[in-house]
């Protein structure tokens, strides 16, 4: 995933992927590890992933949070992997992200944010952890709390300054803002290692404890305890996926808490669904990406084609490319 060629291709200006292609990409990525998922589980994992991402983008305080959310993802990857080669690839990826998005204006990042939101438009799958935490409503929409945090350097609503001709303030007017807002204590850092200042983009199964993102804590945090912690989280996730699968196969009440509505936009045979058809202009581009993907997953395919019992993980795969 952090392969240089893959990243170069990924960062080239291109049209937004259609949903099928994106799903296939993540299917291949998931199966590049030791994880084996059947179609139903893969669908659920993908739905969970897309809904969590949609929430992160929707809940961003300001467009610049997109960068911080991305960096939170990358910080988590960094703390999971110790191989120096992968750490170097993460550094390279960081510079690509900052080069591409670090210089964008507020409005440009907002357009990126809106594009992502429009990609996930009309996808409203209920996610149990969000429902439990009170972040999501039963209709699949997300809660907008009245105690929003205002981004650092901005101003809490409720005041009007009135200026006179010489530019000095002549009066202050106050009004009820409607919410109980608070100001973010500090600006999220976009340094290679820094405090991101937002929980969006960190592990949602990490039961409420803040993820260590400060410079010295980053590498130390990956100890034995942390290791089992991740294992537990993975087990919870797998158990959850299995459970849902069982419930489905055993024909239990489909209206149980987690109701996955799989991409209604796909099934719909309306002209609107053509929106997501692959544009011919970018098919060439995605063909290049697919070629690189197949190159990356080659060992896995040959392995599964051979005995089926041999499983290679992502690290081995990446090593074999080098």
């Amino acid at each position: 995933m952090l392969n240089e060629k893959f990243l170069d291709e990924l960062f080239k200006p291109q049209k937004i992927y259609n949903k099928d292609a994106l799903k296939n990409l993540f299917h291949d990525l998931a199966h590049a590890s030791i994880m084996r998922l059947n179609e139903a589980s893969m669908n659920k994992l993908y739905d969970l992933m897309t809904m969590v991402f949609k929430y992160q983008i929707l809940a961003a305080r300001e467009p610049r949070d997109l960068i911080l959310i991305t960096l939170n993802h990358m910080d988590a990857m960094r703390s999971l992997v110790q191989t120096s080669q992968v750490q170097k690839q993460l550094d390279a990826c960081y510079y690509l992200v900052m080069k591409m998005y670090g210089q964008m204006t507020d409005g440009e990042l907002q357009r990126v944010r809106f594009s992502i939101l429009n990609f996930f438009q009309d996808i409203r799958i209920r996610v149990s952890i969000f429902l439990r935490k009170g972040v999501q409503n039963n209709d699949g929409s997300f809660v907008i709390p009245s105690d929003l945090t205002i981004s650092y350097g901005n101003e809490i609503p409720g005041t009007t300054r009135v200026y006179q001709a010489d530019g000095t303030i002549v009066d202050l007017l106050n009004f009820p803002s409607g919410g109980s807002y608070s100001l973010a204590p500090e600006s999220g850092s976009t340094e290679l290692r820094g405090r991101r200042g937002t929980d969006l983009g960190v592990n949602i199964y990490d039961s409420g404890k803040p993820v260590q993102t400060d410079s010295d804590g980053c590498e130390d945090s990956f100890d034995v305890a942390g290791n089992t912690g991740y294992k537990d989280e993975l087990n919870v996730l797998i158990a959850q996926l299995r459970q849902e699968q069982q419930a489905e196969t055993s024909g239990e009440d489909p209206s149980s808490i987690i109701h996955f509505n799989l991409f209604p936009s796909f099934d719909r045979d309306s002209p609107g669904s053509e929106l997501f058809d692959e544009p011919t202009s970018s098919s060439q581009h995605s063909a290049v990406l697919e070629a690189i993907m197949s190159e990356m997953s080659l060992p896995s395919e040959s392995a599964s084609g051979g005995s089926g019992g041999v499983q290679s993980d992502l690290i081995q795969l990446l090593d074999s490319i080098q």
Binding site: P63, P157, T160, Y163
Partner: peptide, 13 residues
């Protein structure tokens, strides 16, 4: 161009 009033009106965009 002279600024007449400045209002912190909303918590988001």
């Amino acid at each position: 161009v002279r600024l007449l009033t400045e209002t912190a009106a909303h918590a988001r965009y």
